[in-house]
Nucleic acid binder design. Structure first.
Lengths: 144, 144
DNA sequence: TCGTTTTTTTGAATAACTCAAGATAGTTTC
DNA sequence: GAAACTATCTTGAGTTATTCAAAAAAACGA
């Protein structure tokens, strides 16, 4: 299914801005709204920041994009939706990488007690330091 | 160990504001900075917002408080530190509840691939709807 | 092609913090 | 206990990421 069809079947209109958003998000990795806006502009010439925010909301609501918000960084978006994957986040530079879930199908979806909550999602974030920052951290002139 | 001693052994000075912060955080459940500031003021009469932010940072850095930032709500703080517990977050009202980790000691700390990251923490958030919001959602006049 | 409804633009507003400089007050030292 | 040192607090401004609102423009079904 192409993007236009996906938009339509989600009840959304097909606009240049939204196609460009999907395209931009797909081209990068866990980008934030500003970076996506730049990608959109490079594709369609002009788009207001607000249109990008609105589009990102609409597409997330429709399930065409997934929004993640790691502590300390602005919201980021990805096209990989519907599977149960999690994220590695670098404490130093904020870089985000995907990881499949370790534990089978609907894994972490079983807390020891749900305290009466009706749970629909288990979100897992692995915090650490990415390979690049490890190298930089090892060089003397970067040390605090 | 009382709070004053804990502060001192963390290399921090003992001030009325910081004692009040610890006290306030302990008294509530996963409160945000503004709510904590109110608690502090009710205890010591006056404290600037900035002093509360600074105190919360210092205490978190020192390991006396834990900071969590669920997507969509401001940072929240708790005194339960050092154990490996996770959180239930209500999608509707933002309420946060603690849950012990399901899977043993250092549980989810094993992603299927670490992609070269050096991981120090696995954060798990269970998203759902809290008991109170379930009731409200069930009543006709709340329905959308 | 018309009309309806969604989307986009423009411009302002907000929440939640952060930054900076000087005043104040813990703590250590004598 | 007083002085000195430096962490903490106050005050006030600044920032980032995002939301709100109203009018203009563009999709799409009829």
């Amino acid at each position: 299914m192409d993007d236009a069809t996906a938009l339509r079947s989600a009840g959304l209109r097909v606009t240049a801005a939204r196609l460009a958003i999907l395209d931009s998000v797909r081209a990068g990795s866990h980008q934030d709204a500003e970076r996506i806006a730049r990608g959109v502009r490079s594709r369609v010439g002009h788009a207001s920041t607000q249109a990008v925010y609105d589009g990102l909301h609409a597409l997330s609501r429709a399930g065409l994009l997934r929004r993640i918000e790691p502590a300390g960084s602005p919201a980021r978006y990805e096209v990989r939706v519907g599977d149960n994957h999690h994220h590695l986040v670098c404490r130093r530079c904020g870089e985000v990488a995907d990881v499949d879930c370790t534990l089978g199908e609907i894994p972490c979806l079983e807390p020891s007690s749900d305290r009466g909550f009706v749970i629909d999602e288990a979100e897992v974030v692995f915090w650490g330091v990415c390979p690049r920052c490890q190298e930089e951290g090892a060089s003397p002139d970067e040390r605090g």
